[in-house]
């Protein structure tokens, strides 16, 4: 039996007026690579934030490694949306990656040469070694995303949550990021990724979590990512490409 790394029971969350998430139940096993898929406003980012306690939960229980978030904090890595930070902030790529080590360094202490070396190694892995001392404001969107990923890698977590790491990046960056995600999975880590491109879900993820305010279905991609389930998730506003093919690639018509 594989280890359960994340259990979510009866989770609910809201913003000012609207309940965004309700009745969320699912269990994630170690070593899985999950795509969180759903329409805009389905609560994908909110789900991640609520699981991580960055957004208040109205009800429910989340456990990591059969323990609490507080105890498992060191084993959890988070990659926020690229647009969530101020890229004008005067700092270098290496510096941002080093931030991933702040938890290990301990508060009130300064990072040592050892930490810098570790951060550099992680940048190298993302193909960003040449940009280590570059200002983050001078990086392209794809490069910024790679820096964010390098910061997550350096945390050496067991479970990763990534909020749209593939949004607005070019093909080369997308390939580089996916290669790393598959490497993480091969190393037995668990990865959960908010993803938008339905065309690539099958190639990228072995598990899919279909979300629209609540979990429509969660499980192995082959079982879950079916026409019916996708239609249920997106509310039926779908136009099917290549209808003659049973596994035709879905696309959305709004």
């Amino acid at each position: 039996m594989t280890e359960q790394v994340l259990t979510v029971e009866n989770l609910a969350a809201a913003y000012r007026k609207n309940t965004v998430l309700h009745d969320i139940h699912f269990t994630v096993n170690a070593g899985s690579l999950t795509g969180i898929v759903g329409p805009n406003g389905a609560g994908k980012s909110t789900l991640i934030k609520t699981i991580l306690g960055l957004h208040p939960a109205l009800s429910g229980k989340v456990s990591f490694f059969q323990s609490t978030y507080e105890k498992a904090k060191r084993k959890i890595g988070y990659v926020p949306q690229r647009g969530s930070v101020d890229w004008d902030f005067p700092t270098t790529a290496l510096d941002v990656v080093t931030m991933g080590l702040y938890g290990q360094i301990g508060w009130f202490k300064w990072p040592s040469r050892f930490h810098k070396a570790k951060a550099y190694e992680s940048l190298e892995k993302m193909g960003m070694a040449d940009y280590a001392n570059r200002q983050i404001s001078q990086l392209s969107g794809g490069q910024q995303q790679r820096v964010f990923l390098a910061r997550a890698l350096v945390q050496n977590a067991e479970i990763y949550f990534m909020d749209e790491p593939l949004a607005g990046v070019d093909a080369a960056t997308e390939r580089a990021i996916m290669a790393i995600l598959k490497e993480l999975k091969a190393a037995g880590k668990t990865v959960m990724v908010v993803h938008h491109d339905l065309q690539t879900v099958r190639d990228y993820f072995d598990h899919v979590l279909l979300l629209n305010r609540t979990v429509i279905q969660y499980g192995k991609t082959d079982h879950v990512f079916t026409k019916e389930n996708i239609a249920r998730t997106y509310g039926g506003n779908m136009r099917w490409m290549g209808v003659e093919n049973q596994d035709g690639l879905p696309s959305i018509q709004q």
């Binding site: 926020p80 930070v85 931030m99 938890g103 945390q155």
Partner: peptide, 10 residues
């Protein structure tokens, strides 16, 4: 200042 959400996460 740079990334309070990540800071809270760690």
């Amino acid at each position: 200042l740079f990334d309070p959400v990540f800071a809270k996460g760690i």
